[in-house]
């Protein structure tokens, strides 16, 4: 049998680099936190759920946040997948329209509020006082203690 010629070193390194680049986003879960959200803009939102988009790859919780002057601002908060939310104990039912919740999260980088202000949700507090993680792990979001998988 003929001996296979070895791949030249520079090409092997290049191929490895390309492979690493292609795999990197996959390792960062669905999409990287820093691409869309601003870790320097934490938000604490209190309001009533208006509707929930229970969708893959990210659920969206819409809520009307009460302002000091009694007006409301519409917010949409990104959560994990329906599956990750379900596992932490958040269901479509627990987020029924009208439920008063408190969401801690980070605003979108563009700070745009059309059609609603956007944020990445970290945890959500329900009327019964239970506080549940609503994000995804390994997205590069700040380690603020919200993600139970980062507690070691």
């Amino acid at each position: 049998m003929r001996k296979l010629k070895r791949t030249p070193k520079p090409i092997a390194i290049l191929a490895g680099g390309v492979a690493a680049l292609l795999l990197m986003p996959v390792a960062q879960a669905h999409h990287a936190f820093t691409a869309e959200f601003d870790a320097e803009s934490p938000v604490l939102l209190t309001g009533k759920v208006t509707r929930v988009e229970w969708v893959n790859p990210h659920a969206w919780v819409h809520l009307a946040v009460q302002n000091e002057d009694h007006s409301t601002t519409d917010w949409m908060v990104e959560g994990g997948t329906p599956n990750t939310l379900f596992r932490t104990g958040i269901t479509k039912k627990s987020l029924a329209a009208g439920t008063e919740i408190v969401v801690r999260g980070y605003q979108s980088k563009d700070h745009a509020c059309e059609p609603a202000c956007k944020a990445n949700g970290r945890d959500v507090t329900f009327p019964d006082g239970s506080k549940l993680f609503m994000g995804s792990s390994g997205t590069g979001a700040p380690e603020d203690g919200a993600d139970p998988s980062t507690h070691r």
Partner: peptide, 17 residues
């Protein structure tokens, strides 16, 4: 249903990748 599914979407997306 697929868009809102708990498992199927993840299975299909993983299979795709």
């Amino acid at each position: 249903e697929l868009h809102e599914s708990l498992y199927m979407y993840a299975w299909i997306e993983s299979t795709h990748v």
